[in-house]
Write a protein that binds this DNA or RNA. Structure first.
Lengths: 200, 200, 200, 200
DNA sequence: GATGAATGAGGTTTCATTCAT
DNA sequence: AATGAATGAAACCTCATTCAT
């Protein structure tokens, strides 16, 4: 376990450096040597912890996926019974997401920008992932429809995509902000408003 | 005109082939030779029409930007005086966007996925562009606020980003659909509903 | 003959442009297109007058060789019978060479610098040519030895090379001068002095 | 020291191979692959030691320049007070130069032929260098004039160029000789004779 | 376990040359 | 005869990956 534990810590370290460098320079413009240099290790060492360059991108993005999943899993889609409860839930999730990416804008940038077209195979995976997230959001909406606090004729799939799209756009705007965390409340409020009442 | 015209036609031809290939294989995985082969021309010929590989990506994406701009410019942000008029306008714009990308899903994919992280400098440009589109959407919203058919306390910037985000997410979903055009109405309806009334 | 004559004029025109461009940019850095552009002709036209790029370099350098030969052939190596006569002859030849290259420094530069290492095969040829010129100079010296106005123990071959080397170095210095012609007399005097009396 | 020392040794090895290959095939006709193959190394390895193809040419020629400088710097231009001393000095320098290039004719060929027109920028540099060498030779001559063992009316600049030109021509002839070293004495004697007494 | 020297596949780009118009 | 669009050989160079130390 200790060795394994050390290995995990090292992987994490390298992954962090990689994420930062990818976000700063772009995936293709980043060489393994750049990552190693940032850590002050030999670039051969990289290959003791990751199979190849693609592997580390996958690792980083999988990590993000897991963390996103954790934010979503902190809530139970079927637990709410009223619109008010759901609205509160949405605000908690939204705040969670903004915090997650606001703390590490480099990760957000990598996940939503630099990593997207890094590799065709990964693009596919990324789009699948958006589908998976839409499914999660859809589960919340479906619960509302089932419970009757959301209209029966709501197009759940479309709405789920739309809601996620709003969050995506918001994150994209926020990661360029010098102090992302400060903007969280405003964005969550703005999006929640549209989500529950529209712009009108 | 003849020579120049021919040159333009050739550029267009090559750009189309490039867009298709980039969309299929990814920007970095695509070699100039792949594009040339698709057209049945020598790869040296490519360089008679484009300065380099990055040049053609820029050309294709600028073209898309122009076309997006045309769809948006077809409407006048200040022309609407009632919510109903605005809603109709939004539906026209939304339909226009879906048609634009529905007809050429490869372009959409390139614009929203494969091209995004192709190059760090381009990522920056792409994010700027999202800002510009948000500004356009914001102009429509601001008009509503000014005319009084949208609430005075609407956070225009946030809302504009959010609306664009919904459209983005919708397009992303639709381009993977075998028959994107068929889905247009459903998506436009779903997004408009949220936009004007929220999910509730 | 008229057609042929025109062809010759055209060749000369192209060759002049080529020589100028080679001298300005270097042989390898010069493209056929550069030469054609300077003349305002299509670059395909070049190939109606010269077989290929190497061909024109050869043509230009052969032309120079011929002209050099003419300067040397204007005098008869065996015609002089006294040192004084020979000295006068040397001064005439030297002045002729300086005029030749002083009028067209680009040619000189091409012949002695840009063209030298343009191509390995040409380097060889160029060195052979230096040998040929040495032989000519040697003939003059040998005449002096034979006639008795030059010492019998003069190493003709070495001396011939040395004399030519002085001229070469002088030309090299002069072609960088803004007004080469003005310097002719000084250089001819300086070299003749060493040649006939040494530096002492 | 070990790593750096090894690096220097490797650079030298590669530079030697490059010089040989350039001299044999010409600069432009030589590919990096040719140099690598000669050494039995991968061509990527080349780029660990030299930035690019031009870099190695510059390195080799700078090295030659340094060595030439060392030969010249072995003597002190102001140390001689009589013509005899100077003559002895000239013979030492001449012998040194012949030995330098006689030992490595490939270097000489590269320096005086193949490298000269390799690149326009380098041609300029090469001509500047000839000027610098002329200045050194000029310093020796000026000393003679100042000390009174050379005539006051000697055109130092012209004479310096001329002397260097003789040496250049001699080297050019000698490097094509199968056994250059054997010829040294003859050439040094021949040139010194002209230099101090002229051909007469 | 760490290192970094070595490697070579792979891709971009140039430009001399051809040839149909 | 003149043109310039098309071509593809050829060369440079990068950098992910391997592996001996």
């Amino acid at each position: 376990m200790p060795a394994d534990d050390l290995t995990q810590r090292r992987r994490r370290e390298i992954a962090d450096a990689a994420a930062l460098t990818f976000a700063e320079q772009g995936y293709h413009a980043t060489g393994i040597a750049d990552i190693a240099q940032r850590l002050g290790i030999g670039h051969g060492t990289f290959y003791r912890y990751f199979k190849n360059k693609r592997d580390i991108l996958e690792y980083v993005l999988d990590e993000v996926t897991v963390r996103l999943g954790e934010v979503l899993a902190a809530e139970d889609p079927t637990s709410t019974t009223t619109l008010e409860e759901y609205r509160a839930q949405v605000e908690r999730i939204g705040t969670g997401l903004f915090q997650l990416f606001g703390d590490e804008p480099a990760i957000a940038r990598l996940f939503y920008v630099e990593g997207v077209g890094a590799d065709h195979e990964f693009s596919e995976k990324w789009m699948d992932l958006q589908g998976a997230f839409a499914a999660v959001t859809g589960a919340y909406l479906q619960n509302g429809v089932d419970r009757g606090f959301l209209p029966a004729d709501l197009d759940v799939e479309v709405s789920a995509r739309a809601v996620n799209g709003m969050i995506f756009a918001a994150l994209l705007a926020v990661i360029r902000d010098p102090d992302p965390a400060a903007e969280t409340e405003r964005w969550v409020a703005g999006i929640t408003r549209i989500m529950f009442a529209g712009i009108a």
